[in-house]
Amino acid sequence: MIITIVIAVIAAVLALWVAGIFNALVRLRNGVKNAWSQIDVQLKRRHDLIPNLIETAKGYMQHERQTLEGITQARNLAQNARGVGDSAKAESGLGQALAGFFAVAENYPDLKANQNFLALQEELSSTENKIGFARQAYNDAAMQLNNKIEMFPSNVVAGMFQFKAAEFFEIEAPAERDVPKVSFS
């Protein structure tokens, strides 16, 4: 009689413990999903802004047709990319194309004085920042989930319910990966 009660209590405690770990895993996985959707929102916003940018810049930059076409191409590529790894690669390509465009735009004072262009530039650079910050948040969330999945004892529960490790959002462009040098002069 006592033994049955002891076993029942142990079983109940064990079940609660497993449930607790399971819930923690689910919470982390949802965190990763949420962080990813945040990146997604910002990437979509960037895709939506680019036609506006091209439209505004076209009149001023007849001689930069190649730059503009490059952006459009990079955008289409990024829009059709599927999966974390692929879209990370395509998006960083788009980011580089945009950076190149804004560098060229420095040579067009008329364009730089255009109110639409200024508003778009602010929107795009802000979107760029948001992508960066969202990527950081996503990678943090992914690391938390992966740690939980790999570490004992939660790895047992994770294996039981087949939790999959999240993919990191890596930066493909070598230029972006370099540690920036900051000088305080």
Binding site: Q38, S126, N129, K130, A134
Partner: peptide, 9 residues
């Protein structure tokens, strides 16, 4: 925008 960026971060 700046406030939104920092909220995301």
């Amino acid at each position: 925008n700046v406030v939104e960026e920092m909220c995301i971060a």
